[in-house]
Structure formats: C-alpha cells, structure tokens
Design a protein around this nucleic acid. Structure first.
Lengths: 216, 216
DNA sequence: ATTACTAACTTTCGAGTAT
DNA sequence: TATACTCGAAAGTTAGTAA
C-alpha cells in the first residue's frame, strides 16, 4: 500500500518519455498532489532513496526501476481495458529440471479433487514468445497451501486453457505456483503425458488459448 | 493522495472486463495488499461509500465511476509509454462566446513577455475530433495568477504547437487556462487573426502538431 | 526564493473481540 | 467460517523555522 506509486504517477504525467526530466519544486509537487511542501519533499527523498527517481535541485527524472514500476501498473491496466477474449499466447517447449513430476505427484490428490481428474505426473513447460499478459484475472481456482510430514507445499493457482498444436488441441490447466514467478515461463498440467502423446520436443511452438470461463 | 486508487487497481488486476465481478473476502484482499483484514474491510467500505465499487458479501465489482478513475490512470500511463512524437490531433473550428478576446487582452503583457510576441486579441477554438491526449507533459511555460484592480486572473499554461491547414501552417500556442477543463476543446492564440488570415469558418478542420521542444 | 529539520497534531493501522 | 467495531499504537502530516 505504497503511496509513492501515486507520486510517481503524478511525475510521469509531466514527462514526455522514459528519459525525459522535469523541473519541479517540492511545493509545486505538493500542490499538484494536494499535500504540503514538506510532505512532497519527503516523498521525493523517499522515491530517491528507494531508487525510483533521480533528484537534484529542481530536476527530477525516472530511474529504470521507476519506469519498471510504472510499466507494471500500465500493463495491468492495459490488460484490463484492452483485453480481447479469447486470449492466445505462444510459447516454445522447454525442459524443466524434472522437479515438476515430484510436485504434481504431491499435489495430485488436491488437483484430482478440484479439477476432476488425476493429472499426469509432470509439467509441460513453455517459454513465452513475446509479451506476458497478467494472468491473475483468469485464475479459476486456488489450491491452498498444506503440509505433508515436515514439508510445506505452497499455494498453487490454476487457469483452464486450451493447448493448441499443429493439428490437435487439449483442454488442460496452466498452473501458477505462488513462489516461482518465472513470468516468462508457463507450466501446464494435463490428463496425459502431452510430450509423448504429441511427440513434442524442445523448441516446438504451441499456442495457449485462455477462454473466458466466467463467472468464477 | 488517495490510497483507495491502489486498492482499486488491485481489484482490477483480478477482473476480466469492466462488467466482471470477483469473489474475495476482506482477509484475502488484505493479504494481497499486505495489510490487515480490518484495513481491507475499511477500504472496501470506503470504496463503496465513495461510489467506486459495488460490494455485497464476497462479491465485488466496479461502478462506472470506478472504471472512469482507472481509465484516467490508464490513459495517463498510455500517453507516457506509447507517446509518438510529433503528436498530431485534429479539431473543428468553433465559435467561442467572444470572451477569449477580453482575456487575451488582459493577459497580453504577460504573453508578450513570456512568448516574445503580442498576441491577437482573440482565441481560435477547436473542438477536438477523437481522443484528447493528456497535454500536461507538453506544457512549456506557465503564466502565474495575478490581480488587476479587484479582478483575479488565474494561471494559464501554454504549449507551442504548429497549426496546420490546407496549404499553410502557423506556429502558435495552445493555452490551458486553469479553470476551464473543457477537455474536448482547444484554445489557440497566435500573432494574427487566423480566422481572417486563412478565411476559417466554423466546421473547418485543422490539425494541431505538438513537437518535442525539450528540455523545458 | 528554495529544502528539510523538529515537534505537535492527525490519521491510519491492526490486535482484540462482538456479532 | 465471515465482517466490522473499539482503542492504544504506529505512521503520516504540516506549521514553524533554520539553513
């Protein structure tokens, strides 16, 4: 719940590009934000301390971290306002380190209960080609964290998708483990071993279609 | 400096469209935002009280005011990230109520001092065709508010632009008076009476080109 | 003019808890 | 389970002011 983001947005309103800078005093910024000069000054210091802006005298510009923060916000809003369903993303088959099998096995009873089928003990991993849309809004269910023995298993969210190959498609699930925010890699679980069934090898490109299965 | 906007963004992350709704408890929302269940509950009430969301039980959806607020944020970021200069907007000549002449006359000495020329006592008003980009970031200067006699004159910002007609163009200034946020109408001042010089009549369409005159 | 410190004031937070 | 109240603590704000 970081008010700094609101200040950053106010600054970006007056910037023409990522590398642009602007000339503003703390009291000017304060009146733009409806706060005092003192508070504006404090926000500028904090933004600088946290590495979001460069600030010297009246000159203010964004650091790449600052731009990233704003871009993340922008993409989230972009996906909301410009979403066109069904959403299709493309990815290239890659090999995981085989740990997928272990995890799917451990979560298996819960997947079976919530998804209605027993998944193949392994994940198909896809390296995203191009941009990664924010997938949070398509999450159709969540597997709660649990412990088995002395091992903790984290929350896993899932999204129903169609995986589309050359001349076939499969209804399966994209899974989003809480920790691993690869962001550039998708993990998919299905009823069967898709790698074998469709003779997939690393580098093959597949499409993933996210349909609108509302309401949740 | 309204933290509610940050909560609204967090909700919109999980919504597929403007009319979508989601199911979330105050404690779930709290953990998404890194705040307590109590605070999340308070934010939900406040968002509802202020007319940004509908909220009943676990169900949350956006009102049109909520969507507008997010859209305003989205457009601001859009203009920042997707700006392509020079920016050209199109407008249709319309008649003001003639008050432009009075104001330009009153501000004239200041325009002359800051812009380097004595403007024609009148404004050329253009009704925007299509979308209005946020112009704040192109402001090249500001005329400070002042009083003359017992009359107050508010702040006026200006942006250097090229006005482009059929077979002519003029370098002039777009002015943004503090109060009048027409948002759909542009006011332009120039050295001469452009209406006479170029035989303009209501309904004629002109282009306004905003060039990048950095740094400020 | 400007920034930014301190100190007093105000708002917001969240543990405890009633419903 | 859940929401939402109270109230002491924590965080944030700003007037006054020094630099």
């Amino acid at each position: 719940m970081d008010r700094c983001l609101l200040v950053l947005v106010e600054l970006c309103r007056r910037l023409k590009s990522e590398s642009d800078s602007l000339s503003i005093s703390s009291s000017e910024l304060g009146s733009l934000l409806g706060i005092s000069q003192q508070s504006a000054s404090r926000y500028l210091s904090e933004l600088e301390r946290r590495g979001f802006i460069f600030h010297s005298g009246r000159r203010v510009s964004l650091t790449s971290e600052g731009v990233s923060l704003l871009r993340e916000l922008y993409l989230c809003l972009h996906d909301f306002f410009e979403s066109s369903l069904p959403l299709v993303v493309e990815g290239r088959v890659v090999s995981g380190i085989g740990e997928g099998a272990y995890y799917v096995c451990e979560y298996s009873p819960l997947f079976e209960k919530q998804l209605g089928f027993k998944p193949f003990f392994g994940t198909l991993n896809l390296q995203l080609i191009g941009f990664c849309p924010s997938l949070e809004r398509f999450v159709s269910g969540v597997i709660k964290p649990f412990r088995r023995g002395d091992r903790m298993f984290g929350e896993v969210k899932y999204i129903p998708v169609s995986l589309i190959g050359d001349s076939w498609y499969e209804d399966c699930f994209l899974i989003l483990p809480k920790r691993t925010h690869h962001k550039k890699e998708l993990e998919i679980i299905a009823r069967e071993n898709l790698r074998e069934k469709h003779k997939l090898k690393d580098g093959d490109t597949l499409k993933v279609e996210i349909k609108d299965i509302s309401p949740r």
